[in-house]
């Protein structure tokens, strides 16, 4: 922890960064905070509480595109940064990341395969956990049963937008989920399944499986399972894993070879 504070202090002092986005302990709770000077740095903490820091960073950098920022990243944060970079939402060259390896307990809780970023200053690398049991059990259902299962789950939705608000890859300035044509205002639950299908289509090929959406959902819809399935399909069809490498683009964001080959 001290090493982290010292490093951030130095980065700020050298003016290598204009601010550092990390967690600040306030009233006993860690919450996101932009540290811009040495004061208050003693409250900079590392904790098992997760926040979509990179999402906040995206908002920050789009407002101050010329500034350089530092940010605390876990494994999932780093993956989301890579996807945001590919979509021109952040510029990795304008960022200084300070890596944090998650505790074994947190890795267990998240069902995280890679619970650490490529480089880290704090913590010890925990062993990856293979998640996805829910997916198997849902896929094992008969079609009717599965359909009813999902309709029931979607029926619980109170349209709090928590899934979207916590998603590090949701960055549109105007959200389709608030399009009055597709999702009429004032109706809960939102018309099923359009609400959740829009989100699924909007995240496929870039969802990095951090699970923040499911963590945020107050009614316990197994959202991550949907995105896991989509991730599986993308991986099988195109061999692409979002957030894994800086090179290459999401297969859904470019045309394949020979776009001019005669149709039919």
């Amino acid at each position: 922890m001290e090493a982290l504070r010292a490093k951030v202090a130095q980065l700020l002092k050298e003016k290598a960064i204009s601010g550092f986005l990390g967690l600040k302990l306030e009233h006993g709770h860690p919450s996101p905070f932009l540290f811009t000077g040495e004061e208050g740095l003693d409250l900079l903490v590392v904790s098992d509480t997760r926040f979509p820091l990179t999402k906040l960073l995206q908002r920050l950098t789009s407002k101050y595109p010329e500034e350089k920022f530092g940010v605390m990243v876990r494994g999932c944060d780093e993956r989301s940064l890579i996807e945001l970079h590919k979509d021109n939402q952040v510029n990795l060259e304008h960022l200084v990341t300070v890596g944090v390896a998650c505790s074994q307990e947190l890795a267990q809780r998240c069902g995280c395969k890679v619970p650490y970023p490529s480089q880290f200053e704090v913590g010890e690398p925990a062993t990856g956990v293979e998640g996805g049991g829910e997916l198997e059990s849902i896929e094992g259902m008969a079609e009717d049963e599965r359909f009813n299962f999902w309709m029931e789950q979607f029926g619980k939705c109170i349209k709090c937008y928590g899934c979207r608000n916590s998603c590090p890859l949701c960055y549109c300035s105007e959200c389709t989920l608030e399009d009055s044509f597709l999702v009429p205002p004032g109706e809960t639950p939102p018309k099923a399944p359009i609400f959740h299908l829009i989100r699924a289509f909007h995240t496929v090929g870039r969802c990095i499986d951090c699970g923040l959406c499911e963590e945020a959902c107050p009614v316990g819809i197994p959202l991550r399972t949907i995105y896991k399935k989509l991730g599986q399909v993308v991986s099988e069809l195109f061999g692409y894993s979002p957030g894994k490498e800086v090179e290459g683009r999401s297969p859904l964001s470019f045309l394949g070879e020979k776009p001019f080959k005669e149709q039919g």
Binding site: D87, Q89, S253, F254
Partner: peptide
């Protein structure tokens, strides 16, 4: 949102 995927395709 300026992702410019459209420009690519």
């Amino acid at each position: 949102s300026g992702c410019l995927n459209c420009l690519e395709v």
